[in-house]
Amino acid sequence: MINDKDSLLEVKDFFQKTKNLLKLVSTSGKVGFSRKTDLSSLGKKCLPIQIWGKRNFNGLKSLSFRERKRVLNKKLGDETFCVILADGLRFFPDVIQEAKKRKLPLFVSKLSQKKCREEVKNFVLSLSSHPVKISAGLLQIFGLGVLIMGDSGIGKSECALELISRGYRFVCDDVVILQKKTDNKLVGQAPRLTRNFMEIRGLGIINIREIFGPKSVLKQSRVDLIIRLKKLQKKGGDSDRLGLKFPEDHEILGVKVPRINIPVAPGRNIATLIEVACKVHLLRKKGYLAPQDIVRKVDRVLSSH
């Protein structure tokens, strides 16, 4: 992993981290291994890595010498990070020569071009996700990773404790480290320092693992659903009473996670509400939507008159 401060990726690091994955072999020794690229400017752009396959190779072969030089000039520009020749092909001598002149690293891979592209993309995704710390709790309910957010003092920890005592597994409370994984999913875990610990007003700091046993805790979990606890607004006339609207998406690190807002008020058992919200989410994923169901039924009755 690269660290937070320098977002520069060096060819040397790239090669070392991907050589097993991509079955890479360097054709130009360590030429150009100090070449760098800025990852922070990546965003939508992809890494300036040229991945050539059979088609590019044959195209290059059919060109005249002069044409070839022109194409290479364009392809092997200063912005290019490195060139990977996939499909188990070998570079032409003039390409190698040209690259050496420009100090551009050349790699060959035994994998197919498509596979190479995929792996490089995954690698870049894993790099570009710096972990973030957010203030929330993370639990696993019915196999769903549920992130509980809300202002301090609203009862996140108490609610998490209630859910743990019902047998759901606890990842962390108060501080969650979130990271985007290569499959574009968010994974959350506890900071090592406070793993298994929780702070409850009136009880102080407690250790969940020691109280509920090792089965009650998880080291990390994917984040599938966000529950946001909010104080119930007295005016609150515009709340979605039917639940017709789909959960809003909450974006963290560029990953969209469905978010359900649950108003907190005396007499509402938040733990049960969260539990049921998870069930509703699972049903929705299966394709069943209760609000649509009742709307349809009401419409049928109304139209039969």
């Binding site: 937070d4 973030v132 710390k133 203030s135 003092g153 108060d174 501080v175 320092l193 406070t194 702070e199």
Partner: peptide
């Protein structure tokens, strides 16, 4: 260091 935590949470401050 770019990480923001809740100042009303003990565990947050400890991390």
């Amino acid at each position: 260091d770019g990480n923001e935590i809740d100042g009303k949470s003990i565990l947050g401050i400890l991390t």
